[in-house]
Simulated scan of single mutants.
Amino acid sequence: MFELTRYDGRRRIRGSLYLSIGLSLLAAMVIWVYPSFKAEVDLDQLLAAYPEPVLQVMGVQTMASLGGFLSFELYTFGWIILLGLYLAYSTAGTIADDVDRGRMDVLLSLPISRRRLLGERFAAMAVPIVGANVIPPVVVYVGARLIDEPLAAADVLAVHLLSIPYLFACAGIGLLASVVFDRAGIAQRVALGVTFALFLSESLLSGTDAEAVGAIAPMRYYDPNEVLLEGTYDLANAAILVAMTLLFLVAAQVWFTRTDIA
């Protein structure tokens, strides 16, 4: 059982380590510049200078505290946008790349169903998703204390744990694109475009008459500001993201089982 998951997972360990280190360096840099940024810049005046649509898109509430600064500079940019797009893009090659390169016939010759094959390949994405959230929380917690702007350990842990369902949902978008399109390049570009379009739709439609359209976007259900500024953990939103991921997985399995592999 789970032979494909173990095989794919092992192949992703090194890349996941590099990803975690890169995100940790980004976190360290953001924390390092915060004291001088706070001392030299009028943060309220800076926010007032930004157009309201920009603040809405980036989910900025305040930068006068380290928690608000990290929510904007690290988690919105690094986790919601960059990591979400990366996982959608990476997962989009899961099936499409094997079909594109003519390797899928070998996998389909194994004594496992297409549903299981797809499920095990998708499960291997837990390696980069979890791996990206191993080192950075330690860096954030320790770094905040080193600059005398301590954050609650529970909040730091929560903002990373709650990102995991969000990142799986983004990966689910990529998985669906991977079975719908049999060219890896096309699947990856579609996954990137759809994920970014969902981010924009949720950000720009919030507070408008069309706000309900943004309900299909995973970004609606992961808000670092709630955790770092208010100390609230919305488990209901996490459950919605889990359900969304399962929906993407089942839809991809149904499509994959009914598709002829050329």
Rank of each mutant, 00 (worst) to 15 (best):
Y141G: 09
I95Q: 03
A126E: 03
A88N: 01
M58D: 06
L70W: 06
G93W: 01
S113A: 08
A92V: 02
G93E: 02
Y166R: 09
I164E: 13
R115A: 13
V159I: 11
V130H: 05
I147S: 12
I81L: 09
L175G: 03
T62I: 07
S163M: 15
V140I: 15
C170L: 06
V139F: 10
R145F: 08
D148A: 15
I147W: 08
P165G: 06
T91A: 02
L161I: 15
M104T: 08
W79P: 14
D100F: 01
A154Q: 11
L110T: 13
A123Q: 09
L167E: 11
G59E: 08
L118E: 05
T94D: 03
V139E: 07
R103E: 08
A153P: 14
A126D: 04
A177S: 08
G174N: 02
L85T: 06
D100W: 01
V139P: 14
V180C: 00
G84S: 03
N133R: 08
M125L: 08
V142K: 10
L151N: 09
V140M: 03
L175H: 05
A126Q: 06
S71R: 04
Q56V: 02
L175T: 03
M104E: 09
V179C: 10
A152R: 11
L66A: 01
G68I: 04
A92T: 00
I147A: 12
N133E: 07
F181Y: 12
V127D: 07
I129C: 12
A171G: 04
V60W: 00
A158N: 14
G68Y: 04
A123V: 13
D155P: 15
R115Y: 08
Y86K: 01
G119P: 10
W79E: 14
A88G: 06
L117Q: 12
A124Q: 12
P136Q: 03
L175V: 04
I95W: 01
R116L: 11
L87I: 00
L151K: 10
D105S: 12
P137M: 05
S163R: 15
L70S: 05
L162H: 14
L70R: 05
A177V: 00
L176P: 06
A169I: 01
V140N: 05
V138S: 14
L167F: 13
W79L: 12
Y141M: 09
T62F: 05
A158H: 10
P136W: 02
Q56T: 04
M125Y: 15
V106N: 06
V57R: 01
L82S: 05
F72G: 06
A177R: 00
A123W: 07
P137V: 09
L85E: 04
L167M: 10
V156T: 12
L176E: 05
L74H: 06
L82R: 01
S71F: 03
P136H: 05
L110R: 15
A96T: 00
I173R: 01
L110G: 08
M58Q: 11
M63V: 09
T94N: 00
V134M: 10
V140E: 03
I80H: 09
S90A: 04
A158P: 10
M63L: 07
G78K: 03
V99C: 04
G84I: 01
I81M: 07
A154S: 13
L66E: 03
P111C: 02
V127Y: 06
D100Y: 01
V130P: 06
V142W: 11
V130E: 08
L66G: 04
G174Y: 02
A123H: 11
